[in-house]
């Protein structure tokens, strides 16, 4: 592993240790069942991770992955169209700008009426949160390219496919990844919220259920897993970004 990766790993470990120390101190001061000592939470986590939590974690990951994939499938071509063809942008930009600022969570009641309270509405919710970010990132990524970037390809009679492959795709990747990273944080919190009803599975359900059962250790174990999921997703995004955007 290169030195820089070690450094990153070390700073993450230091951060985790710091948080645990703060947590432990707060627990020691407060002496309340609602703030248990971290080691007790991790003990519980170890004993119920496989048997009780993993199925919920898988459900949440599936919903995020499905929403993300849908958002990329729809958002990337849309952003491409808007970024590359000014006419498409003139047509679509007003629609995007008018719908983008609507808090997606406010649409949840409508969504649940239309798509039911089950899987579909949860996945569509995540899709809605991510898709706008993707559209705008790709569109602006292309719009920010100087015209001269295309000239050496155009003068060789490059096809649209070649222009995409050699210029547009690589040029939009950094902004694309950043957009996904930003949207992911919102997506996870909204997922938590949507999982508190209409399902028996998912980290949101697990945490709220533990809370209602007044089982604080389970609840904390769930929170730790949810945080770890977020970290994992960021890690995956970072990995792909550093792999595919090595030139930066």
């Amino acid at each position: 592993m290169p030195i820089s990766s070690w450094r990153v790993l070390r700073s993450y470990l230091l951060g985790a240790v710091f948080l645990l120390v703060v947590w432990s101190a707060v627990a020691a001061v407060m002496q309340l069942p609602i703030v248990p000592q971290p080691w007790r939470v991790f003990e519980r986590l170890a004993s119920i991770m496989v048997s009780a939590i993993s199925i919920h974690a898988l459900y949440s990951i599936w919903r995020i992955a499905a929403g993300l994939v849908l958002a990329v499938i729809v958002g990337y071509p849309l952003g491409l169209l808007m970024g590359y063809f000014p006419r498409a942008d003139r047509l679509l930009a007003p629609i995007v700008y008018l719908t983008y600022p609507i808090p997606k969570i406010a649409l949840l009641p409508i969504l649940m009426l239309l798509a039911g309270v089950g899987e579909l509405s949860k996945i569509i919710m995540i899709f809605l949160i991510i898709v706008f970010q993707v559209v705008i990132a790709v569109r602006d990524g292309i719009g920010g390219l100087p015209r001269e970037t295309y000239y050496p390809l155009y003068s060789l009679g490059a096809s649209l496919g070649q222009v995409f492959r050699y210029i547009i795709f690589p040029a939009t990747l950094p902004k694309f990844f950043t957009a996904i990273r930003v949207a992911m944080a919102t997506a996870i919190s909204v997922l938590f919220f949507t999982e508190t009803f209409g399902t028996q599975y998912g980290m949101g359900y697990f945490i709220m259920d533990a809370w209602l059962r007044v089982n604080y250790l389970d609840m904390y174990a769930g929170i730790v897993v949810l945080s770890a999921m977020g970290l994992l997703l960021f890690g995956i995004i970072d990995f792909f970004q550093s792999r595919l955007c090595r030139w930066q």
């Binding site: 000239y151 050496p152 009679g157 690589p170």
Partner: peptide, 22 residues
């Protein structure tokens, strides 16, 4: 002029390198 049939090398002032290609 037909860039599809001819090959025209065009070097803009910034050399026209793609930053994401080695």
């Amino acid at each position: 002029v037909d860039p599809h049939r001819l090959s025209i090398g065009f070097m803009p002032q910034n050399y026209g390198l793609l930053p994401w290609k080695n």
